[in-house]
Amino acid sequence: MSFAKLSTSALAIAVVSASAAAARDQVQVAGSSTVLPYASIVAEAFGENFEFPTPVVESGGSSAGLKRFCEGVGENTVDIANASRAIRDREIAACAENGVTDIIEVRIGYDGIVFASQQAGPAFTEFEPSDWYTALAAEMPVDGAMVANPNTTWDQVNADLPAVDIAAFIPGTKHGTREVFEEKVLLQGCEDTGALQAMLDMGMDEDAAEGACMAVRTDGKSVDIDGDYTETLARIDSNTNGIGVFGLAFYENNTDKLKVATMGGVAPSTETISTGEYPVSRPLYFYVKKAHIGVIPGLKEYAEFFVSDEIAGPDGPLAEYGLVSDPALAETQANVADEEILGGNT
């Protein structure tokens, strides 16, 4: 009965593995799919240059990553969470409840969000935040009352835009990108058009008015994409009039298929984003569990390597891939070296 032998040995290994897990020797990272390419580039270079094994980088979204990060301290929890937004107070509280108290926040650089359409499609070359608000808002104030968005073509939104149907592909609500899109484009557009003021004048309180600014129409003119940018690209490919929201790095890898539009008169590039001229950008972070430093081999070295000049600097491989490097990188390096935790060392 060799099968019996095989199966008992497999079960034995399964039991032993619980203790084997205690000897985890590689760094484990989870979180944002926007940060994943950068983290994998760093992990690969880290594995090449150090005697530590290559870290494991999983994706799944900023929120999912931070949730796993906050599950507790111990070797079967992740050491680092990647996030395309800053950690929220609610998440810090959830972390603290599970004993994860000392968290080191590391800002790795900035990511631009670009608006692109098919290379051969209509001439979408210039946008203002107000165009996007007027095109995508669910309801807007007209003569003192909220009415459903009447616009169906882009030229109704702005006479300078092509006369084609509105077909926007925006990131779904589980993406960190969506939050930036709502705050920096829709809310901005809402203010620029005076709609926000009109709503406040109608007697709405500020929260409700801002909520109304960021509510996206659900009549099919705007489609939430819950998958990755590859899915948005596939939708744009099959729809001549489609416009999608992409990360700068994704656009730079697909310039043969996509043409990018300016926002507020500024073309997106690593330069315009680092100077702050291009309005739609956001910082990228990763969070390190201080309790794991010294327990998981290579964890601090990985964090330091990530923000070193030769990796995250303006000439490093991350910038080459599309990351906008952080002008305050030296400060971040010092923070990582001192293991400065959120809320300050006490």
Partner: peptide, 8 residues
């Protein structure tokens, strides 16, 4: 098991 994992 999905991500940048299979490197070693």
């Amino acid at each position: 098991m999905v991500g940048f994992i299979a490197s070693n």
